[in-house]
Amino acid sequence: MNSPSIPLDEAWQDKRWLWLLSPSIPLTFTSSLLAFVYTGQWWCMLLAPLIIHVLLPVLDRVLGEDFSNPPESAVAQLDADVFYRAMVWAYVPLQMIGTVLGAWIAVSQPLTWLGYAALVFTVGAINGIGIGTAHELGHKKETLDRWLSKIALAPSAYGHFFVEHNRGHHKRVATPEDPASARMGESFWAFLPRSVWGSLQSAWALEQERLNKQGHSVWHLQNHNLQAWGLTLLLFGALVAWLGWMALPFLLVQAVYASSMLEVVNYVEHYGLLRQRDASGRYVRCEPEHSWNSNHLVGNLLLYQLQRHSDHHAHPSRRYQALRHFAAAPQLPAGYASMITVGYLPPLWFAWMDPRVMAHYGGNLQRVNLQASARRRLMQRWG
């Protein structure tokens, strides 16, 4: 019998061929780079930010949401079908092509400052969304998937995400101890350095603990952080050896932008949500109610259903094609493309999301994950 919290749409249909949209992102954005090389018009490279911040929010609004869930009888077949894994694998080589082409353009083509910025945004977007691909791959047990995850993280120099997300964030999600869970009243610009530094520290500590238990030093070659960062050094070193030192500033700046794209998504996913403590003082198990969810169709097709984040956190091993909508999960008012744009603008974000956090908790501010520096203001507003 189906759980009443998981509505089953009898009209569910497998979106098999629509999943081709996911690896189409690096292909499309790389095409805009080729258009610049061919025409010399820097504005060709504005395609990526226009798609992310304009087209996708419009399409999400027009095409709406899809609340249907695959029946459990179909999940085993969906998991076994290699087509869905191939759709994730395909992103990685296309991502690398876009990164290499972008580095070549940065050092070999005449660029104004606006053109250089557009190039950074385009390649950074390929690799920022690539972190989402690494996220899907990194949760899997297969060796190929796990190494592809590390490779996908190499251009953003964010290889420690492989460790911290799986073993740190998933353990501490929606608690004040988690650097990647945003607090109500915390702006994205305050959250960003806290999440970046906290995640880095956590990833290092997690690997140190794991390796010490095995009798190894933290500097052992089995350190997943060192392996992932080594791939970044290999990639950047190869491009610098080929293109010269002028490639390095571009690679670093686009990596900063790429990692910031991950962090603004982190900011959206758990803003203000808090797991309560049980009678023993421990945090309750992570449930769908502890992650913001979105069923906007286009964004989910482009991001391997990352927006169905509630099911992902409640059931981390479930593959993207089988993720479900839960009625109990708090729903975002728009897809990620809209939410990250608003997230950059704190007054708009607070006006949009704070009432939703309070509605989720029935107006009880004591149940909310609060930013300490904003507590007085929030108490005056909501207390």
Rank of each mutant, 00 (worst) to 15 (best):
D278R: 00
A76Y: 02
R275P: 08
V173F: 02
F161C: 05
I6M: 10
Y271P: 00
S3P: 07
F188S: 01
Y267M: 06
K171R: 14
R275E: 07
L252S: 02
H53T: 09
Y320M: 10
P23G: 12
G335T: 03
N300F: 05
S24G: 10
H220Q: 02
F161D: 06
P347K: 00
P4Q: 02
I105E: 01
M45F: 02
L101N: 06
Q95T: 08
D145K: 03
S156M: 08
L27A: 15
M96N: 05
L332T: 06
L46G: 14
A134H: 03
Y271F: 13
R61L: 12
Y38S: 08
G383T: 01
L8A: 08
A74Y: 05
P249W: 12
D79N: 15
T232F: 11
V218C: 03
L78K: 02
Q77G: 09
G138Q: 07
A205K: 15
Q41Y: 09
L226V: 13
S24W: 12
E142Q: 13
P26I: 14
R277Q: 14
L47Q: 03
E142A: 13
A374Q: 03
A337H: 13
Y257A: 13
G215W: 05
D66Q: 03
N2R: 10
Y257C: 07
N364Q: 14
A74D: 12
W19V: 00
A372W: 01
L345F: 15
L153Y: 11
F29D: 01
L55Q: 01
L206Y: 13
S156N: 04
